[in-house]
Design a protein around this nucleic acid. Sequence first.
DNA 1: GCTATTAAACGTACGCTGTACGCCTACGAA
DNA 2: TTCGTAGGCGTACAGCGTACGTTTAATAGC
Lengths: 206, 206
Amino acid sequence: MPRPRSLQPDRLAAAAVAIIDRDGLAGLTMRSAAAELGMSTMALYRYVADRDELELLVCEWVLRDLDTTVPDDPVWTEKIKTLCHRVRASLAAHQRVVPLLIANRQRCRAVLRWTETVLTVLTQAGFDDADRVVALRGLVAYLNGALLQESLGSLGGPGTLVMAALPAADFPLLRDTARRAVTVSLDDEFDGGLAIVLRGLAAMVS
Amino acid sequence: MPRPRSLQPDRLAAAAVAIIDRDGLAGLTMRSAAAELGMSTMALYRYVADRDELELLVCEWVLRDLDTTVPDDPVWTEKIKTLCHRVRASLAAHQRVVPLLIANRQRCRAVLRWTETVLTVLTQAGFDDADRVVALRGLVAYLNGALLQESLGSLGGPGTLVMAALPAADFPLLRDTARRAVTVSLDDEFDGGLAIVLRGLAAMVS
DNA sequence: GCTATTAAACGTACGCTGTACGCCTACGAA
DNA sequence: TTCGTAGGCGTACAGCGTACGTTTAATAGC
C-alpha cells in the first residue's frame, strides 16, 4: 500500500561505479551519487544505511558476474590461476574500486563465494589444516597486493617514471629496473607474479 | 634573525604517528595533530605543505630506523627474507600506517632505499631484465598484501570470526578454515606466505 | 637599550563532507 | 474519497582541509 520504490539498488550501485570510474574514489560522495541519479542527497538513505553500505553495494555490483564455479582446467594450479584471472577480469574495467573491495573483503558475498571455491581446489590438491590456511592467505595476499598495485598505477604510470628519473648514483638498479619495467605488459607482470606463487604452492604439497 | 622554529619535523611526525596508533588513521586530522602538539591548526602549515606531506612524513618516520644494508645471510633467499622481516618489524608497532605507506611507496625515501637493496640481492642471485621486474613486483605485491591484511586485522580479528560464523551449508570450507585460522600465529602466517613466494622465486633462477 | 625586520604562529572563514531530523507527498487499500 | 504508509526532500550541524590576513616573538644593527 505504500508508495513504490523508484530505484533498485542495482541502479544505485551502477551510478556509484560510474562516478568512481570517471572521477576516482574521492569523487564518490553521497551528493555526487544522488546527483548522478537525479535525486536529492537524502533520498539515497532510503536505500542504504550509510556510505559504508553504499561502498559494499559497489563491491557486490562490480563482482556481480564473477563466475565462482570450479574451473575445469586439468591441473589444480591452473584452476587457481583461472580463478584469479576471473577476479582480475571483473575488475579490469573498474580498477579504482579495488581498495574498496579489499576493505570489504569479509562482507562481500561474491568474495566469500570465490574464496570457498579456491578452498575447494586447494583441498582437492591436498592442502589441509594450517597449510591450507597459509596457502589461502599467501595467495590472497599476492592477489590483493597485485591488484592494488595495478589500481594505484604500477607499471608505466607516473610512479614508475619518477623512479626511472632517480639519480643513478643512489639508485642504480632501481632506476634501471624502472626503465625496463615500462616494457613489461600488465598481463605479463600479473601472470609472472602469480606463476611465482603457484610454483611455491605446488612445492608445498608435493 | 627571524623567530626560530619551535618544532622539528620529527616531533610533528611522531605526534601524528601517536595519534594513528591511538585513534586509527581516521583519527589523524590537521586539527588533531595540532592539538597533540599544543599548537594551532594552521601553525602546522609552516612545516608541511598539506595533509599529503604530513602523511609522507609519517611514512618516513616509521621507517626511520629501517636497516637497508644487504643482510649477511648465506643464501640469497634468506637475505630477501631478512629484508622483509625488517620492514615488518618496523611496522609492527604502527600497523595502522600501512595503507599510508603503500600509497606513498614511490615517494618514501626509505622504501626506495629498501627496494634498491632488494634489487641488489636479486641481481646477485641471477635475475635480470624482465625476470627481475617480475620478481620484484611479485615479491612486493605479496609483502604489501600481507602487511595490509595484518593491518586490517587478518587472523583472529573480528573479520575472521564473522567468517567462522558463516552458515556451514553455503561455506563449509571457508567456515572450517576460518576456525582453524585463529590457531595460526601471525608470524607463522607471514613466514609461511613468504616461504611460498621465495620457493617460487628460487625456481625461477635455477 | 632601542628599533626594524623576518618568519612563526594564530584566527577567521569558505566550501566540502556525512548524516540526523522533520516535513511533505504520492501511492494503494479500504 | 479517505487514510496509512513509506518515499522523497530541505534544512541544519559538526567536522574536514586549507586560503588568507593579522599578530607576535626573536634577533641584527644601531
